[in-house]
Nucleic acid binder design. Sequence first.
DNA 1: CTGAAAGCGCTAACAG
DNA 2: CTGTTAGCGCTTTCAG
Lengths: 360, 360
Amino acid sequence: MRRCTANRTFPSIDSVVKTLHDATVTTSQDPRPTMLDVARLAGVSLKTASRVLNGEPHVAAGTAAKVHTAAGQLAFRLNGIARELRQGARSTSVGLIISDVANPFYARVARGAERRLRSAGLQLITASSDEDADSERKLTAELLERRVCGLLITTCLSDHAHLEIERRLGIPVTFLDRPPVGIVADTVAIDNEVGARLAAQHLLDQGHRRIGLIGDLSRLTTHRERVAGFQSALTEAGVDDWERYVRADSHDSESAGRSVRALMALKQPPTALFTTNNRITIGALRALRDRARPPALVGFDDFELADLLGVTVISHAPEDMGAIGAGLLLARLDGSSAGAHSERLPVRLIERGSGERPPA
Amino acid sequence: MRRCTANRTFPSIDSVVKTLHDATVTTSQDPRPTMLDVARLAGVSLKTASRVLNGEPHVAAGTAAKVHTAAGQLAFRLNGIARELRQGARSTSVGLIISDVANPFYARVARGAERRLRSAGLQLITASSDEDADSERKLTAELLERRVCGLLITTCLSDHAHLEIERRLGIPVTFLDRPPVGIVADTVAIDNEVGARLAAQHLLDQGHRRIGLIGDLSRLTTHRERVAGFQSALTEAGVDDWERYVRADSHDSESAGRSVRALMALKQPPTALFTTNNRITIGALRALRDRARPPALVGFDDFELADLLGVTVISHAPEDMGAIGAGLLLARLDGSSAGAHSERLPVRLIERGSGERPPA
DNA sequence: CTGAAAGCGCTAACAG
DNA sequence: CTGTTAGCGCTTTCAG
């Protein structure tokens, strides 16, 4: 039986070189050479070409050389799609769903994950959900259809039972930053409660009693944990009306700025602020820029230039979140069936001035 | 002929639900249901199942319903790998190679590209090369093996003839930020020369004559174009010893800081600085932070918090670079065979204070 | 050390 | 409206 590729003319190296000087940029349709083409040109069987091209042992040196030459002449490139299909319909890429790559926090998470995965020979497909549930569901489905071998998710959904099926089918899922609901799975999050308590305690230590909290979307676990830590420090210190100065649901710096201005416009404005993520901190700084006597401020998440601006922050390592999450995924792919691992990344307070201002 | 899947037992919804309460997180091995499994359960042929699952017309409503029910029961998910293989061994993803996602400039480029591609139903695989040639070559090969349907590259190589072959084989490549060498291809870059001239002219207008330039790796086209623009403004203004204050090859903020300190330690230090990218500008700001009378400064690339820090910059839109580049790629995938398109993104100077300081 | 045949899961082409 | 057949490009199995 002859394949239809039998009569194919091979694009010669000459023809390739010639077009280097063409001015047109055509997306032309020379069929891509297959392994069979290489085998024929080398005068060996398909299997032998496969062996050589995959670096398998037990091939005569001369044979291998012929195959390599043929592959070079044809500009052959192994078809990873066909290989994956044959090997079990699972790809060598991992999907990462974050809310926005342009947010430095997530960019660093992605970077950490990419590094760790690459060291294991896997690729990372990053997608941004914009904190939208439908978008996250759609991206998840797309990535699974493309047969990623695992998923790293910074979820904005409130239920993850649908992913249990995937896990049973061999696709591990690791949750980053926010824990899953309705299933048990590996999770890497920040020690939010401790971090928030640290921030609040620091401000209390400077003598502040009216401390404002500008928070992210109130449905997010991170937000709730940070509020919990804040609350525990304040109530322990005997500040019972702490809720008066809590403003949640700022998911970008503009809305955070509005909340700050509203808070500062009260008759009894707060003397200090705890801004619960990098976007919010930046919004607050902008809103406060022209104040002669700005309130003290501690922000959750470190950010570039916080040093120059003298902003005291609760710092942690986003890269580690990505790297550790990727590591957990790799362990599952390796067959680990240990109980779900839940990791909390450590935080520390970095004093830079803004958090050390005393009450007005 | 019976397939080996014939005797497979389907994982029932019950068994799936049951495990929701298991505490173990096994990456177990239930085989994933195929379209044939769905077809059998629904009592229709494979092709009919395929039609329904792909939303093709000409299927009776009742038949479609049966198939959907079966698919739901089995938690079926179409195998994108098999589909792609059948449809021509080309995937629905585009590869993007940048130097580092954690650099906000590239993160914004990635964001722009992702948005544009997603609107066309494609996914983006982002990889960081760390400005390393071997790494870029390796990533390129990997992405091509995975049969991305196109490539967006911020290259650090000095020759791209090898990509000509890919183009002939139908894989378009668009160059971002830096033009290709040795081949003709679509390119989206910033108007570097104009931007640099704008920066230099602005500083000259404030009366500066000794203007330092802290630059990126000198082999980069972007660097050379920015130096050219800088030079043309200075020589036109009669400043002939402009090279005295040029320091190149700072690729991170630390080395930029060192160059700044070295420059400022001269007997006749510059009274103004032009920092040619966001990393360098930030390094310079850190190096200058404790100076009572810092030199004037204009930076290439806008960056977050430049407003608060009062840094005058040459601004442009990195998202557009990604989006326009992706658009050019999509046009090629659509069959466009127009001549290579070379786009220059506009720049503008934003005055924020640092660039308006007069000479000491 | 080398090769022939089967088939991964799907869709295209063509019947009915 | 529905089904049958072939085959995408590769790796696996088994036989030389």
